[in-house]
């Protein structure tokens, strides 16, 4: 019947609210301490190669950035080696002219678009800048891989794959 909050009820609720606030503050603090720091591991800008070194029919691998560089319509593309499926290192296969993942056999075309296999998207691109004819790869800026769909370049598989049974 009574609608106003009595003293006991006020105290009981106050304690619970206080405990909740302290808990939330603790959780936030722990989260802030433990969340990943961008500078760990990859993350920096890597001066990768001269622009004219980047091929148009193939790719070059930049070890320091874990990146493949290739060219598409005069634009340099940097593709992270990490397979969007489960994180294995995707290898460039020269004989077939495509990227091939050793873990579950996902394949991607030269500019990283999805071709086959269980990967949900194409390869993830890094930000690229060109400073005085030098390609710089910003490994801190990982883009989303393009969704599976029609490929925008017409480069079919040109030979035998490097992975057996795929």
């Amino acid at each position: 019947m009574k609608h106003e909050i009595g003293r006991r009820q006020f105290l009981a609720r106050g304690w619970k609210l206080g405990a909740l606030l302290v808990g939330a503050a603790g959780a936030w603090t722990s989260w802030d301490v433990l969340r990943s720091r961008a500078e760990a591991g990859l993350g920096g800008v890597v001066r990768a190669a001269r622009v004219d070194e980047v091929p148009a029919e193939s790719t070059i691998y930049i070890r320091a950035a874990q990146t493949y560089l290739t060219r598409h319509e005069d634009e340099v593309i940097a593709l992270w080696q990490r397979c969007p499926h489960l994180g294995c290192r995707v290898a460039w296969c020269e004989s077939s002219g495509q990227f091939e993942c050793p873990c579950h056999g996902s394949t991607f075309n030269r500019i990283g678009e999805y071709r086959s296999g269980p990967s949900p998207t194409g390869l993830q691109p890094f930000g690229v800048g060109v400073v005085e004819d030098e390609v710089e790869v910003d490994t801190g800026a990982v883009g989303r891989g393009p969704p599976p769909g029609a490929e925008t370049i017409d480069e079919p598989v040109r030979g035998p794959t490097c992975i057996e049974g795929a």
Binding site: R63, Q66, Q81, H85, R89, P102, C103, I163
Partner: peptide, 20 residues
């Protein structure tokens, strides 16, 4: 820089990996 082929999770996650 080199993923072993095949890449296997610990055996108790093998069923999940197979599903994946």
């Amino acid at each position: 820089f080199e993923t072993p082929n095949p890449e296997k999770a610990p055996w108790y996650f093998a069923a999940l990996q197979e599903l994946l």
